[in-house]
Simulated assay, not measured.
Amino acid sequence: MIRTRAARFRRGIVFVLPGLWVLVVVLWELLSPLGTQFIELLAATPAIACAGTGRRQCVLLGGLCALLALVPPVPSGRVGASGRLGTCGAVLAVVVASYLISSRTRRLNGELERAREVAVTAQTVLLRPLPPRLDGIALASRHVSAGEGALVGGDLYEALSTRYGVRVLMGDVRGHGLPALGTAAALLGSFRDAAHDEAELPDVLRRLERALHRHVWDRRERGTGGAARDRWDAEEFVTVLLLEVRADGEVMALNCGHPWPHLLPGDGPRPIVLAPGDPLPPLGVFPLPAELSPLPLIRLLPGDVLVLHTDGVEDARDAAGAFFPLARALAEAARDAPPALLTLIARVQAALLRHTGGPVADDFALLALRNERGPGPQAAARPPRALVAGP
């Protein structure tokens, strides 16, 4: 409410600024004891209106106010007829120039708005909103891009309901913002096909690796060549976390250099960092091994929440250089029992932005999923798992 009132006040000041300028110039001319002529400053009125609002009507109104101010009460002795005539001509010239500039600015703003709408639509299609529920699994996600003018960047995620279970992708392309969009698009497109086509999770990962190699090759062929191109190829990589939530709640995982997820058990608010093993190197650094076996991550019981994230979350720093305490933020965000997923993610995002105290330096993404299926015969007890407890 306070911000809305402040914005309205600023808009009101901008609209009346040309009139205030005319009033100040006229009073200055009348009250100045030095005999100096300031009436020529009225010629700036249309330019002020153009800069303030950019509307052609305001430019014309500002010019009219300036012309009317040239009519007495300004004494003829202080401003002669030639001075008034010259000032009048200057006002008219500035009105014409400002009117043309305003028309061009309005046209360019319209084109910019249309381009922004196209960009928003394209980026939304690329990183489309997740459905609130897939095959009994509730979902919620948030993404913030560090690139100016980009809604999405190097972080990517997707969740799909397939005949093999709910398959989830969380990834992080080297770099951030608009330059990373091409790689993110290639991987997301490949995952959306492979998740339905491939019966085994390792085959999905191999499809992602091939998509990355094709994308890098295409960019290399279209590039300028030379050492810079070779250096870019060597540095192009993506961290990937692939999950498969099966019908009994068992979650299988393949991890290529990505942070492991956090678990919020349904029977307690303390977050747990799942660590079933060492991750593989990121995609693009080394070829995938010939033998790939998914790791059993956890059996997700009804009410359990799994929180996936990119490294932009835990790597976020405050002014003193301290890293963002994700586990503590999750514990505070999950103070409600059970927490709404959208509320949980929004609280963590707000805590992260408070921690950084300004714009983020890297993209970050959060994805939470909760098992809302009924208890099954194989999900009666939580099996042992390798994990590291969060603080």
Rank of each mutant, 00 (worst) to 15 (best):
E113T: 15
L112M: 15
N109Q: 12
R116W: 07
R106M: 10
R106G: 08
S102P: 06
R107I: 15
L126K: 02
L126S: 03
L108F: 08
E111Y: 08
T105L: 12
Q123D: 03
I101D: 02
L108K: 00
T124I: 00
G110W: 01
V120K: 10
A97D: 01
R106Y: 03
R104V: 02
T121R: 13
R104N: 00
V120T: 15
L108I: 14
S98M: 03
S102Q: 11
L100C: 07
R107W: 14
E117K: 13
R104T: 00
A97L: 12
Y99G: 00
A122P: 01
L112F: 13
E111K: 09
Q123L: 01
T105V: 03
R116V: 03
R106N: 05
Y99S: 14
V118S: 00
R106E: 05
I101M: 12
E111P: 00
L100P: 02
L108R: 11
R104Q: 04
R114V: 06
E113G: 10
V125D: 00
S98E: 03
G110I: 09
L100S: 02
S103N: 07
L112D: 04
A97T: 09
Q123N: 05
S98I: 04
S102W: 13
R114T: 08
E113W: 06
N109D: 03
T124N: 06
V118L: 10
L112Y: 07
N109Y: 11
G110M: 14
S103C: 13
V118E: 11
E117D: 15
S102F: 02
S103R: 15
R114Y: 05
Q123F: 03
S102E: 11
I101N: 06
R104G: 00
G110Y: 06
L126G: 06
R106K: 11
A122Y: 04
T121S: 11
L100E: 04
S103D: 13
R116C: 06
N109L: 15
A122I: 12
R104L: 05
E117P: 04
A122L: 14
E113N: 04
L108V: 10
V120H: 15
S98H: 03
L108Y: 08
R114A: 14
N109S: 04
I101P: 00
A122N: 07
S103H: 07
V125I: 14
G110P: 10
S103F: 07
R116P: 02
E111M: 13
R106D: 01
E117G: 10
A115K: 11
E117M: 12
T124V: 01
T105C: 09
Y99A: 11
R107V: 14
E113I: 08
